[in-house]
Design a binder for these strands. Structure first.
Length: 484
DNA sequence: TGAAATGTTGGGGCG
DNA sequence: ACGCCCCAACATTTC
């Protein structure tokens, strides 16, 4: 019986894996393959990918198989493996990034005549096609999208890993994991990542258990970076070490077992934000590059390399911003509330183009994800279809006081401010000099002065927004609006 | 899934 | 007792 190829992509798991299960159900022996391509994979993501692949390979070895690792253009690599193994079919899970979709269509062109190709929508609660509005157009606003999605009922229950797993990997060439060169070497900046995360299907399952116990406090606590109530499932979901269906049903079950709370609903709504982001990316492939609101093509952004670097390094003089950016650098992750604060600061206080922030996030986040990242940055920048209005400008000091009231999150990530009391820590410059002295703190030396005056920056951003709108109204500038 | 400016109200001090 | 003012607290509007 000829083997079939299971092309692993963003579904690095054995449980509830539609492509793997269908391949096993075919009755043919399986060749499990991962092909490293260079699609939108930043440094932190590559670190994660290394260990996720290692884990998947171990799990396959426990089932007397292994993961075939290759590198190159997937359609060519898969064609070569199909030829050398005599495979009759390829099973894989779709991705929704433009370049990944192009990859899939090239695969179809190259092999569609000689092999059976079985793609699965397995990355989201729903496929990216449904739901649609009554006029059969994609939703552009989250809430009606969410209501229509919830109206479709619960997603399917997860399925267990195929057992036994019949595979055929003898004699199939594979690279060693180290040959993929996914880990940082000089310097090795990954210590904080190693301390924080356990990539792989087992780690994902453990994290899901923890998240379920925290769900009851999620509605009220998820905005508090000083607490640990968010699930931290994002990188596991990104690499498909568990499916959103597994998360959905585990959270629902936990909510039934405990006293019912608003927490589960708030949590599951967030899971649908993930679906919505990929749905938007699928229907609007320009999402990573272009503002969905065209008028923002004319926004007067400021190029400012020094300010961008201060932001990246966590050296802006706004404690909550610096804490977030340092948490990101150290651990490859940042609390969601703080992501909104630092993003608002970059886009509105510094008026730096949102794509420069998006690029930094893609390189430094372990959960870097083109759909989520693009949709979220456009949301913050005010140029998405369902975005926060541009004039909704966060005051980083007030946000800090509101969501990190005791300053514990700041103390954790900005140690030079750790001695300051809660009243002073969000605004070190306003602290009395003797308070700073007794904390061993020299403003402008140990910790920077604020790189902008927030009140002035806010007014400048509002004026820039107004100028963009005026430009659109004036006849001289309007020809662009009639283009395509 | 804001913040600041502006408007309104009502209690209390005071002449 | 009464009106006036102050201002905190809350509500509304605007950016």
């Amino acid at each position: 019986m000829p083997p079939v190829i299971v092309w692993f992509r963003r579904n690095l798991r054995l449980c509830d894996n539609a492509a793997l299960i269908a391949a096993a159900d075919s009755g043919c022996p399986i060749v499990p393959v991962y092909v490293l391509d260079e699609l939108d994979c930043g440094g932190a993501s590559r670190w994660w990918l290394h260990f996720s692949l290692e884990r998947l390979d171990k799990d396959l070895k426990r089932r007397h198989s292994r993961l075939i690792l290759r590198r190159g253009r997937p359609e060519r690599v898969l064609a070569e493996i199909a030829a050398s193994t005599g495979a009759a079919a390829i099973y894989y899970a779709r991705r929704y990034e433009p370049l990944a979709r192009a990859q899939e269509s090239r695969l179809g062109e190259l092999l569609g005549d000689s092999l059976d190709i079985h793609p699965y929508d397995d990355y989201l609660l729903r496929g990216p096609s449904a739901p649609k509005t009554q006029s059969d157009t994609p939703f552009k606003v989250f809430t009606p999208y969410w209501k229509a999605s919830v109206g479709l009922g619960d997603p399917p229950l997860p399925s267990p890993a195929p057992s036994p797993l019949q595979t055929a990997t003898d004699g199939v060439a594979s690279l060693a994991l180290d040959e993929l060169a996914l880990l940082p070497t000089s310097p090795d900046w990954a210590q904080g990542l190693r301390d924080t995360w356990t990539p792989g299907e087992d780690g994902a399952a453990a994290r899901l258990d923890v998240a379920c116990t925290a769900v009851k406090d999620y509605a009220d606590g998820r905005d508090r970076p000083d607490r640990d109530l968010t699930s931290k499932l994002s990188p596991h979901l990104h690499f498909g070490e568990l499916s959103p269906r597994q998360v959905w049903h585990a959270v629902k079950a936990a909510n039934l077992a405990a006293a019912r709370s608003r927490g589960a609903e708030a949590f599951l709504r967030q899971l649908y934000w993930r679906d919505f982001s990929h749905y938007l990316l699928f229907h609007f492939p320009d999402l990573p590059e272009k503002p969905l609101r065209e008028e923002f093509e004319h926004f007067p952004w400021h190029e400012n390399a020094a300010a961008l670097e201060a932001w990246q390094c966590g050296w802006t003089g706004f404690p909550i911003v610096d804490a977030g950016m340092r948490q990101l650098w150290a651990t490859g992750w940042m609390h969601n509330r703080v992501r909104m604060i630092v993003a608002s600061f970059l886009v509105k206080d510094l008026m730096i183009p949102w794509r420069q922030g998006a690029d930094w996030f893609l390189d430094t986040l372990v959960d870097a994800d083109l759909g989520n990242n693009s949709a979220s940055w456009q949301w913050v920048a005010g140029c998405g279809t369902d975005a926060a209005p541009y004039f909704r400008i966060f005051n980083p000091t007030l946000q800090g006081k509101k969501f990190d009231p005791n300053g514990d999150y700041i103390r954790r990530w900005v140690p030079e401010l750790a001695q300051l009391p809660a009243e002073a820590i969000h605004e070190p410059r306003a602290a009395e000099r003797d308070l700073l002295d007794s904390a061993g703190q020299r403003l402008g030396v140990d910790y920077p002065e604020p790189i902008v005056n927030h009140a002035a920056a806010r007014n400048e951003a509002l004026a820039a927004y107004q100028s963009m709108r005026d430009l659109l109204k004036s006849p001289a500038a309007s020809p662009g609006s009639s283009v395509g």
